[in-house]
Simulated assay, not measured.
Amino acid sequence: MQLSETGRGVLVSGASRGLGRAVARAFAANGDRVAVHYGTRADEARATLASLEGSGHVLVGGDLADPGDAARVVDEAAEALGEAGGGSGIDVLVNNAAVNLPHPLAETPYEEWAALWQRHVSVNLLATANLSHLVARRLIDRGAAGRIVNIGSRGAFRGEPDHPAYGATKAAVHALGQSLAVSLGPHGIGVASVAPGFFATERVASRLTGAEGDAIRAQSPFGRVADPAEIAAAVLWLASPAAEWASGTILDLNGASYLRS
């Protein structure tokens, strides 16, 4: 079965604000039906849902660090997007949910360090792996093509001295995506990742003022940071039928702020 261009069911994890919201809007504007996932920010998720073009969009909440909750999120999203009624259910998964909490080694007590590593691994890596399994198995059982797009990070390659667990888990997400691309290709499921650099969201708005903001913008020869919509446009393309041959790729989206060989 071929993946359609529009009218797909799309689950976006961590879509209450920021990049997740931009991704949800991009798919909705493309004519797809979006399941907007949130962890704790229900009000912001409802604002995302209200901002989407078209109809058939749904809200699903749950703690993706809990494997049982992750399974419930996928069940609810698939049913709401039409699987129970003979519709497509989930055709595209965007693994966007993540935590990024500072923990520089020299300044972080061991107990806090260990707890923060556990949290990053649970949300950034294991939740991505679990959602990918849950959605891919549904696609395989339906005999349907599909797409999984993972949100990684430039920090997986550049290093994150103040956020080492974030950098490490995003590197693992990239490796996971490549492994899944090989194993799921025979089933018509493409898997790709994006590795964004700095982009402007509500969460980092304070960092983009003053000297720190100037230094961040100077990392790119364009003298700016990305807009979330620019990242979302790349995610939308990687989820399209035209991008099947990009399966396995890690797409750098950092405005030439970091070049890797």
Rank of each mutant, 00 (worst) to 15 (best):
residue 183 S to I: 05
residue 183 S to W: 10
residue 184 L to M: 14
residue 186 P to M: 13
residue 186 P to C: 13
residue 188 G to C: 10
residue 188 G to V: 08
residue 188 G to M: 10
residue 188 G to T: 09
residue 189 I to S: 08
residue 189 I to L: 12
residue 191 V to E: 15
residue 191 V to A: 14
residue 192 A to K: 13
residue 192 A to P: 14
residue 192 A to V: 13
residue 193 S to H: 09
residue 193 S to D: 12
residue 194 V to K: 09
residue 194 V to D: 07
residue 195 A to N: 15
residue 195 A to P: 13
residue 195 A to Q: 14
residue 195 A to G: 13
residue 195 A to I: 12
residue 199 F to H: 12
residue 200 A to T: 11
residue 202 E to L: 10
residue 203 R to D: 15
residue 204 V to D: 13
residue 204 V to T: 10
residue 205 A to C: 09
residue 206 S to T: 07
residue 206 S to Q: 10
residue 206 S to G: 05
residue 208 L to M: 15
residue 210 G to T: 00
residue 212 E to M: 06
residue 214 D to T: 12
residue 215 A to G: 00
residue 217 R to L: 04
residue 217 R to N: 01
residue 218 A to I: 07
residue 218 A to M: 11
residue 218 A to G: 09
residue 218 A to W: 12
residue 219 Q to V: 04
residue 220 S to K: 06
residue 220 S to C: 08
residue 220 S to P: 06
residue 221 P to D: 10
residue 221 P to M: 08
residue 222 F to E: 11
residue 222 F to M: 14
residue 223 G to M: 05
residue 224 R to P: 04
residue 224 R to Q: 10
residue 225 V to P: 05
residue 226 A to R: 01
residue 227 D to S: 09
residue 228 P to W: 03
residue 228 P to Y: 01
residue 229 A to P: 05
residue 229 A to R: 13
residue 229 A to H: 08
residue 230 E to W: 01
residue 230 E to R: 01
residue 232 A to F: 03
residue 233 A to N: 07
residue 234 A to G: 04
residue 235 V to C: 01
residue 236 L to I: 05
residue 236 L to S: 12
residue 237 W to V: 07
residue 237 W to S: 02
residue 237 W to C: 03
residue 237 W to M: 08
residue 238 L to A: 05
residue 240 S to Y: 05
residue 240 S to L: 09
residue 240 S to F: 08
residue 241 P to D: 04
residue 241 P to E: 03
residue 242 A to R: 12
residue 242 A to P: 01
residue 242 A to S: 12
residue 243 A to D: 05
residue 243 A to C: 06
residue 244 E to C: 00
residue 246 A to D: 02
residue 246 A to L: 07
residue 247 S to D: 01
residue 248 G to K: 06
residue 248 G to M: 05
residue 249 T to C: 11
residue 249 T to V: 11
residue 250 I to Q: 10
residue 250 I to E: 11
residue 250 I to V: 15
residue 250 I to R: 11
residue 251 L to N: 06
residue 251 L to W: 11
residue 252 D to R: 10
residue 252 D to I: 01
residue 252 D to G: 10
residue 253 L to H: 02
residue 254 N to M: 08
residue 254 N to T: 08
residue 255 G to Y: 14
residue 257 S to W: 11
residue 258 Y to I: 09
residue 258 Y to N: 09
residue 258 Y to Q: 08
